[in-house]
């Protein structure tokens, strides 16, 4: 049986955090392709297939892991743009952030975030959190059929 595997998109400006997240995903042996984006503008360009990403292979990602603090357009700005667009609002977005602040949490849910995860300091817990996010959103969760990235058939 052929399974369609969508990409995992990480939007993260901190290279160390990015490396740790990718390492955590790697330890969980997920088959999904991981795309790393470094700021809010790049994230939107990628998802809308424009600018530097105009020629990327098509398809919406399985999940977008979004940091709150990002250069140019912050996480809440990206969230607002995607959840306010009929075409994009079905893409699952998980906030993966350091902030435990209630107002960030409340604002994210108000804008329609699918999940909000505070990055644990402890690496074992971090790996565990990333594993659960990855396995749930990228493997277990079903999304309505839509354009998927070609060439990622198993």
């Amino acid at each position: 049986m052929m399974t369609l595997i969508r990409r995992i998109v990480i939007v993260e400006d901190d290279p160390h955090d990015l490396e740790l997240t990718i390492a955590a995903l790697a330890q969980n042996r997920l088959a999904n392709e991981v795309v790393a984006l470094r700021d809010g503008v790049e994230a939107l360009d990628y998802l809308y297939q424009r600018g530097n990403h105009a020629l990327r292979h098509g398809g919406d990602p399985a999940i977008v892991l979004l940091d709150l603090k990002l250069p140019k357009i912050d996480g809440l700005g990206v969230l607002r743009a995607l959840k306010g667009d009929e075409r994009m609002k079905h893409i699952p977005i998980v906030m993966l952030t350091s902030s435990r602040e209630e107002r960030d949490l409340i604002e994210s849910y108000r804008l329609g975030v699918n999940a909000y995860v505070v990055k644990p300091v402890d690496f074992a817990s971090f790996i565990d959190a990333v594993k659960q996010i990855g396995s749930f959103w990228a493997v277990i969760n079903q999304v309505p059929p839509g354009p998927a990235a070609p060439g990622t058939y198993d």
Binding site: D17, L20, A23, L68, S98, S99, V121, F123
Partner: peptide, 21 residues
């Protein structure tokens, strides 16, 4: 406090994370 919450925790996570790696 917001900055403590967000910015101070990040390097700490890196110390722990790369230590574990």
């Amino acid at each position: 406090t917001y900055s403590v919450s967000h910015d101070l925790r990040a390097p700490l996570r890196h110390v722990a994370g790369f230590g574990e790696l």
